[in-house]
Amino acid sequence: MKFKIVGGLLMAAAAGMILTSCLGEPKNDYSFSIKVSNLIIPDDLNSEIQVSHGCTYSLKVDGVKNKIAVSTTTLAMNGSSNLTFASNPMDGLVLSGYGSESATFARGTAKLSNGKEVTDINGFYTSIVNYYELAGDPFPMAVVRPMLVMNYRVGDTTIYTFSPDSFFSGSTTTTYSLGEGAPEKHFTTKDAVYRVKFAENMKTATLVLYNIQFAEEMGVKLAAVVLKDLPVTLCKDGYVISAQNVVPEMFDDSGLTPMPRYIFNNIVVETPNPTLTDIKCDYTVAGAFKGVFEGQCVNKFEVSAK
Protein backbone atom coordinates (compact mmCIF):
# COMPACT_ATOMS: atom_id res chain seq x y z
CA MET A 1 0.00 0.00 0.00
CA LYS A 2 1.43 3.24 -0.94
CA PHE A 3 1.08 6.36 0.98
CA LYS A 4 1.51 9.80 -0.29
CA ILE A 5 2.23 12.98 1.51
CA VAL A 6 -0.31 15.51 0.43
CA GLY A 7 0.47 18.97 -0.78
CA GLY A 8 0.26 20.30 2.71
CA LEU A 9 3.44 18.46 3.54
CA LEU A 10 5.23 20.04 0.63
CA MET A 11 4.11 23.43 1.80
CA ALA A 12 5.09 22.53 5.29
CA ALA A 13 8.43 21.37 3.98
CA ALA A 14 8.96 24.70 2.28
CA ALA A 15 7.92 26.48 5.42
CA GLY A 16 10.13 24.17 7.38
CA MET A 17 13.17 25.13 5.37
CA ILE A 18 12.51 28.76 6.16
CA LEU A 19 11.74 27.83 9.73
CA THR A 20 14.94 25.96 10.26
CA SER A 21 16.97 28.69 8.64
CA CYS A 22 15.35 31.23 10.92
CA LEU A 23 15.36 29.20 14.08
CA GLY A 24 18.82 27.81 14.16
CA GLU A 25 20.59 24.62 13.26
CA PRO A 26 18.58 21.37 13.55
CA LYS A 27 19.88 18.88 15.99
CA ASN A 28 22.23 16.22 14.74
CA ASP A 29 21.58 12.75 16.18
CA TYR A 30 18.97 12.25 18.83
CA SER A 31 16.58 9.53 19.86
CA PHE A 32 13.31 9.43 21.69
CA SER A 33 10.59 6.94 22.42
CA ILE A 34 6.86 7.13 22.49
CA LYS A 35 4.31 4.65 23.74
CA VAL A 36 1.23 4.21 21.60
CA SER A 37 -1.44 1.69 20.75
CA ASN A 38 -1.64 -0.24 17.50
CA LEU A 39 -4.73 -0.85 15.40
CA ILE A 40 -4.08 -3.99 13.38
CA ILE A 41 -6.32 -4.31 10.31
CA PRO A 42 -6.09 -7.41 8.15
CA ASP A 43 -6.72 -7.22 4.41
CA ASP A 44 -9.36 -9.92 4.88
CA LEU A 45 -12.24 -8.00 6.40
CA ASN A 46 -13.70 -11.20 7.73
CA SER A 47 -10.75 -11.57 10.04
CA GLU A 48 -10.65 -9.96 13.44
CA ILE A 49 -9.35 -6.44 13.81
CA GLN A 50 -6.89 -6.36 16.70
CA VAL A 51 -5.68 -3.68 19.05
CA SER A 52 -2.55 -3.82 21.16
CA HIS A 53 -1.62 -1.28 23.78
CA GLY A 54 1.63 -0.16 25.29
CA CYS A 55 3.84 -0.53 22.26
CA THR A 56 6.94 1.62 22.44
CA TYR A 57 8.53 2.87 19.25
CA SER A 58 11.95 4.43 19.26
CA LEU A 59 12.86 7.03 16.68
CA LYS A 60 16.42 7.84 15.86
CA VAL A 61 16.69 11.14 14.09
CA ASP A 62 19.54 12.59 12.09
CA GLY A 63 18.52 16.21 11.75
CA VAL A 64 21.34 17.10 9.41
CA LYS A 65 20.88 14.32 6.89
CA ASN A 66 17.10 14.21 7.43
CA LYS A 67 17.09 10.48 8.12
CA ILE A 68 14.77 8.80 10.57
CA ALA A 69 14.93 5.20 11.71
CA VAL A 70 12.11 3.53 13.63
CA SER A 71 12.39 0.51 15.86
CA THR A 72 10.42 -1.36 18.48
CA THR A 73 10.82 -4.29 20.84
CA THR A 74 7.28 -4.45 22.16
CA LEU A 75 5.04 -5.07 19.17
CA ALA A 76 2.19 -7.50 19.91
CA MET A 77 0.09 -9.04 17.16
CA ASN A 78 -1.50 -12.32 16.14
CA GLY A 79 -0.92 -13.81 19.57
CA SER A 80 2.78 -12.93 19.73
CA SER A 81 4.25 -10.30 21.97
CA ASN A 82 7.50 -8.42 22.20
CA LEU A 83 8.11 -8.66 18.49
CA THR A 84 10.95 -6.44 17.35
CA PHE A 85 12.05 -4.69 14.22
CA ALA A 86 14.37 -1.86 13.27
CA SER A 87 13.92 0.01 10.05
CA ASN A 88 16.50 1.35 7.71
CA PRO A 89 17.19 5.09 7.97
CA MET A 90 14.39 6.60 5.99
CA ASP A 91 14.41 9.75 3.96
CA GLY A 92 12.33 12.32 5.61
CA LEU A 93 12.12 15.88 6.87
CA VAL A 94 12.95 17.10 10.29
CA LEU A 95 11.66 20.39 11.60
CA SER A 96 12.58 21.79 14.93
CA GLY A 97 11.82 25.07 16.53
CA TYR A 98 9.84 26.82 19.22
CA GLY A 99 10.79 24.05 21.64
CA SER A 100 9.21 21.29 19.62
CA GLU A 101 10.14 18.86 16.89
CA SER A 102 8.34 17.36 13.98
CA ALA A 103 9.66 14.66 11.71
CA THR A 104 8.23 12.86 8.72
CA PHE A 105 9.46 9.70 7.11
CA ALA A 106 8.41 7.39 4.30
CA ARG A 107 9.08 4.17 2.44
CA GLY A 108 10.81 2.39 5.27
CA THR A 109 11.45 -1.35 5.49
CA ALA A 110 12.49 -3.76 8.20
CA LYS A 111 12.48 -7.39 9.19
CA LEU A 112 10.31 -8.48 12.08
CA SER A 113 11.85 -10.75 14.67
CA ASN A 114 9.50 -13.54 13.58
CA GLY A 115 10.94 -13.36 10.10
CA LYS A 116 8.18 -11.46 8.41
CA GLU A 117 8.91 -8.44 6.29
CA VAL A 118 7.90 -5.02 7.42
CA THR A 119 7.27 -2.70 4.50
CA ASP A 120 5.86 0.74 3.65
CA ILE A 121 6.74 2.34 6.94
CA ASN A 122 5.32 5.89 6.68
CA GLY A 123 4.35 8.49 9.11
CA PHE A 124 5.26 11.49 11.17
CA TYR A 125 5.96 12.48 14.68
CA THR A 126 4.97 15.80 16.22
CA SER A 127 4.74 17.36 19.63
CA ILE A 128 2.58 20.21 18.42
CA VAL A 129 -0.81 18.86 19.19
CA ASN A 130 -4.13 20.21 20.22
CA TYR A 131 -4.42 20.52 23.90
CA TYR A 132 -6.86 21.79 26.43
CA GLU A 133 -6.27 22.47 30.04
CA LEU A 134 -8.95 22.30 32.69
CA ALA A 135 -8.12 22.64 36.33
CA GLY A 136 -9.41 19.72 38.38
CA ASP A 137 -10.33 17.72 35.30
CA PRO A 138 -11.11 14.10 36.28
CA PHE A 139 -9.59 13.14 32.95
CA PRO A 140 -6.51 15.30 32.97
CA MET A 141 -4.48 15.81 29.86
CA ALA A 142 -0.93 16.95 29.50
CA VAL A 143 -0.36 20.42 28.17
CA VAL A 144 1.72 19.16 25.27
CA ARG A 145 1.35 15.58 24.17
CA PRO A 146 3.62 13.97 21.64
CA MET A 147 1.98 12.06 18.84
CA LEU A 148 3.25 9.40 16.52
CA VAL A 149 1.13 8.85 13.43
CA MET A 150 2.61 5.87 11.62
CA ASN A 151 1.49 2.95 9.56
CA TYR A 152 3.26 -0.02 8.02
CA ARG A 153 2.60 -3.40 6.47
CA VAL A 154 3.39 -6.79 7.93
CA GLY A 155 2.35 -9.51 5.54
CA ASP A 156 -1.33 -9.03 4.73
CA THR A 157 -1.94 -6.74 7.64
CA THR A 158 -1.67 -2.99 8.04
CA ILE A 159 -0.78 -1.57 11.41
CA TYR A 160 -1.75 1.95 12.45
CA THR A 161 -0.47 3.67 15.56
CA PHE A 162 -2.83 5.75 17.62
CA SER A 163 -3.31 7.25 21.06
CA PRO A 164 -6.03 5.63 23.16
CA ASP A 165 -6.72 9.05 24.68
CA SER A 166 -6.89 11.77 22.03
CA PHE A 167 -8.16 15.33 21.94
CA PHE A 168 -9.73 16.68 18.79
CA SER A 169 -10.32 20.31 17.95
CA GLY A 170 -12.12 21.72 15.01
CA SER A 171 -15.52 23.21 14.32
CA THR A 172 -18.88 22.41 15.87
CA THR A 173 -22.02 23.55 14.10
CA THR A 174 -25.37 23.19 15.80
CA THR A 175 -28.72 23.52 14.07
CA TYR A 176 -31.85 24.27 16.08
CA SER A 177 -34.99 26.33 16.19
CA LEU A 178 -36.50 28.14 19.12
CA GLY A 179 -40.03 26.87 19.16
CA GLU A 180 -42.46 25.44 16.67
CA GLY A 181 -42.53 27.27 13.39
CA ALA A 182 -39.52 29.36 14.29
CA PRO A 183 -36.83 29.69 11.63
CA GLU A 184 -33.87 27.37 11.78
CA LYS A 185 -30.78 28.79 13.40
CA HIS A 186 -27.16 27.79 13.23
CA PHE A 187 -24.47 28.22 15.81
CA THR A 188 -20.81 27.50 15.15
CA THR A 189 -18.02 27.37 17.65
CA LYS A 190 -14.39 26.46 17.39
CA ASP A 191 -13.85 26.53 21.13
CA ALA A 192 -15.09 23.02 21.84
CA VAL A 193 -12.62 20.16 22.21
CA TYR A 194 -13.71 16.52 21.95
CA ARG A 195 -11.84 13.85 23.83
CA VAL A 196 -12.02 10.14 23.00
CA LYS A 197 -10.65 7.87 25.72
CA PHE A 198 -10.82 4.15 25.04
CA ALA A 199 -11.19 1.45 27.63
CA GLU A 200 -8.41 -1.09 27.81
CA ASN A 201 -10.43 -3.70 25.95
CA MET A 202 -11.43 -1.22 23.23
CA LYS A 203 -15.05 -2.25 23.56
CA THR A 204 -16.13 1.05 25.06
CA ALA A 205 -14.97 4.63 25.10
CA THR A 206 -15.67 7.77 27.11
CA LEU A 207 -16.35 10.93 25.20
CA VAL A 208 -15.77 14.32 26.88
CA LEU A 209 -16.94 17.56 25.27
CA TYR A 210 -14.98 20.48 26.70
CA ASN A 211 -16.09 24.09 26.43
CA ILE A 212 -19.27 23.13 24.62
CA GLN A 213 -22.08 25.48 23.76
CA PHE A 214 -25.07 24.20 21.80
CA ALA A 215 -26.72 27.50 20.97
CA GLU A 216 -25.95 31.18 21.05
CA GLU A 217 -28.80 31.67 23.48
CA MET A 218 -27.09 29.44 26.04
CA GLY A 219 -24.81 32.37 26.80
CA VAL A 220 -22.21 30.25 28.56
CA LYS A 221 -20.12 27.23 27.73
CA LEU A 222 -20.23 24.06 29.76
CA ALA A 223 -16.76 23.23 30.99
CA ALA A 224 -16.91 19.45 30.54
CA VAL A 225 -19.77 17.20 29.45
CA VAL A 226 -18.96 13.53 29.94
CA LEU A 227 -20.55 10.57 28.06
CA LYS A 228 -19.32 7.40 29.64
CA ASP A 229 -18.99 3.84 28.36
CA LEU A 230 -20.16 4.30 24.77
CA PRO A 231 -19.97 1.12 22.63
CA VAL A 232 -17.07 0.93 20.13
CA THR A 233 -16.98 -1.00 16.84
CA LEU A 234 -13.63 -1.42 15.09
CA CYS A 235 -13.69 -1.34 11.28
CA LYS A 236 -11.43 -0.96 8.26
CA ASP A 237 -11.59 2.82 8.56
CA GLY A 238 -10.78 2.82 12.24
CA TYR A 239 -13.68 2.81 14.61
CA VAL A 240 -17.28 3.81 15.11
CA ILE A 241 -18.70 4.87 18.47
CA SER A 242 -22.45 4.90 18.53
CA ALA A 243 -25.07 5.15 21.25
CA GLN A 244 -28.59 6.38 21.91
CA ASN A 245 -30.33 8.13 24.77
CA VAL A 246 -27.22 8.78 26.80
CA VAL A 247 -27.59 11.01 29.86
CA PRO A 248 -24.40 13.05 30.07
CA GLU A 249 -22.71 14.12 33.26
CA MET A 250 -21.39 17.57 33.89
CA PHE A 251 -18.11 17.91 35.67
CA ASP A 252 -17.96 20.56 38.35
CA ASP A 253 -16.03 21.01 41.55
CA SER A 254 -18.31 18.65 43.40
CA GLY A 255 -17.77 15.78 40.96
CA LEU A 256 -19.87 14.42 38.14
CA THR A 257 -23.52 15.44 38.11
CA PRO A 258 -26.04 13.90 35.69
CA MET A 259 -27.66 16.33 33.24
CA PRO A 260 -30.90 14.73 32.05
CA ARG A 261 -31.88 18.00 30.35
CA TYR A 262 -29.06 17.55 27.84
CA ILE A 263 -29.77 13.91 26.99
CA PHE A 264 -27.94 12.82 23.85
CA ASN A 265 -30.73 11.22 21.83
CA ASN A 266 -28.11 9.75 19.55
CA ILE A 267 -24.40 10.15 19.04
CA VAL A 268 -22.08 8.72 16.40
CA VAL A 269 -18.31 9.23 16.31
CA GLU A 270 -16.43 7.82 13.34
CA THR A 271 -13.03 8.10 11.76
CA PRO A 272 -12.88 8.71 7.99
CA ASN A 273 -9.66 6.74 7.66
CA PRO A 274 -7.59 4.39 9.81
CA THR A 275 -4.87 6.91 10.60
CA LEU A 276 -7.30 7.94 13.36
CA THR A 277 -6.15 11.58 13.26
CA ASP A 278 -9.60 12.89 12.31
CA ILE A 279 -13.06 12.28 13.64
CA LYS A 280 -16.55 13.26 12.67
CA CYS A 281 -19.16 13.41 15.38
CA ASP A 282 -22.92 13.73 14.83
CA TYR A 283 -25.35 14.04 17.68
CA THR A 284 -28.74 15.27 18.72
CA VAL A 285 -29.17 16.82 22.16
CA ALA A 286 -32.47 17.15 23.99
CA GLY A 287 -34.31 16.40 20.79
CA ALA A 288 -33.65 19.94 19.65
CA PHE A 289 -30.00 20.61 18.91
CA LYS A 290 -28.37 18.76 16.02
CA GLY A 291 -24.63 19.04 16.28
CA VAL A 292 -21.90 18.17 13.81
CA PHE A 293 -18.23 18.22 14.71
CA GLU A 294 -15.23 17.66 12.47
CA GLY A 295 -11.82 17.85 13.98
CA GLN A 296 -8.26 16.67 14.15
CA CYS A 297 -5.96 15.64 16.91
CA VAL A 298 -2.82 16.91 15.23
CA ASN A 299 -2.13 20.17 13.43
CA LYS A 300 0.59 19.34 10.98
CA PHE A 301 1.19 16.97 8.12
CA GLU A 302 -1.45 14.91 6.47
CA VAL A 303 -0.74 11.35 5.56
CA SER A 304 -3.44 9.63 3.60
CA ALA A 305 -3.84 6.09 2.36
CA LYS A 306 -3.77 5.63 -1.38
Binding site: A135, Y210, N211, V220, K221, L222, A223, A224, M250, F251, D252, D253, S254, T257
Partner: peptide, 9 residues
Amino acid sequence: LMEKMGIAS
Protein backbone atom coordinates in the same frame (compact mmCIF):
# COMPACT_ATOMS: atom_id res chain seq x y z
CA LEU B 1 -17.01 30.40 41.03
CA MET B 2 -18.87 29.51 37.87
CA GLU B 3 -16.05 27.19 36.87
CA LYS B 4 -16.53 25.31 40.08
CA MET B 5 -20.14 24.82 39.01
CA GLY B 6 -19.23 23.55 35.58
CA ILE B 7 -19.40 26.77 33.56
CA ALA B 8 -16.31 27.38 31.45
CA SER B 9 -14.11 30.40 32.18
